[in-house]
């Protein structure tokens, strides 16, 4: 149902005037429409992360949310996490990342998001797919059984966005639309002092 709604919204927002559009150029108006779609996906991801991390979310529900979250991503996407006090980057498949988040050993977890969202330009890669990056900031707080704050960080998340031209048949007519999928995510801890 959600997928259908998404396709309809996509077609409404993005396919209008598609045929007349030059294939190697995205107009500012089109870019804004694509940005909105990409931001919608990133917001969905943010909601899913909050739900997965929430200790009050039941296991079966969290699993269902993880499935939904994974659907937002291109196959093989990874999350690369680095912290201020450790060298190197830890890589996780997106599902593994969400499952680790679900299993975090805190009694209570608060995941909050800053309002700021930074959307890059869309650049074309050799196969014609457009690629961009959306940057968001997350505040994570983990509490122990007594309700004491035991861990807190603010992370910058740079999320890859792939935008591909696709076609679908509706009532026998071939309609073009832009499909948006998320890709690799780079998670960097921000400096506190």
């Amino acid at each position: 149902m959600k997928a259908k709604t998404f396709i309809i919204i996509t077609l409404l927002f993005v396919s209008f005037g598609f045929e007349s559009m030059a294939q190697d150029h995205i107009s500012p108006a089109r870019k804004q429409a694509i940005d909105s779609l990409a931001l919608e996906k990133v917001r969905d991801l943010s909601k899913y992360i909050t739900l997965i991390g929430d200790k009050e979310t039941e296991f079966s529900e969290a699993q269902r949310v993880i499935d939904r979250a994974v659907e937002l991503f291109m196959e093989g996407s990874e999350v690369g996490v680095s912290s201020l006090f450790r060298e190197g980057i830890n890589y996780y498949e997106v599902r593994e990342y969400f499952e680790r988040l679900m299993r975090l050993n805190y009694s209570k977890v608060d995941i909050e998001w800053y309002k700021i969202e930074y959307v890059s330009d869309l650049e074309r890669q050799p196969d014609g797919t457009y690629v961009g990056v959306i940057t968001i900031f997350q505040k994570f707080s983990g509490y122990d059984q007594e309700g004491g704050l035991v861990y807190e960080d603010v992370t910058k998340k740079d999320i890859t966005v792939y935008v591909k031209r696709k076609e679908t048949q509706i009532a026998g007519k071939l309609i073009g639309f832009w499909d948006v999928l998320l890709g690799d995510i780079r998670v960097k801890e921000t400096s506190k002092e």
């Binding site: 917001r43 909050e112 998001w113 800053y114 309002k115 700021i116 969202e117 330009d121 990056v133």
Partner: peptide, 27 residues
């Protein structure tokens, strides 16, 4: 005033001022 993503209130001016991407450096 950013687009509404989440629930954190407070001053985000540092985050706006930060040059968050190389793309933003160019722009």
């Amino acid at each position: 005033e950013g687009q509404n993503l989440g629930s954190i209130t407070g001053d985000e001016s540092d985050l706006y001022a930060q040059t968050k991407q190389v793309n933003q450096f160019f722009r």
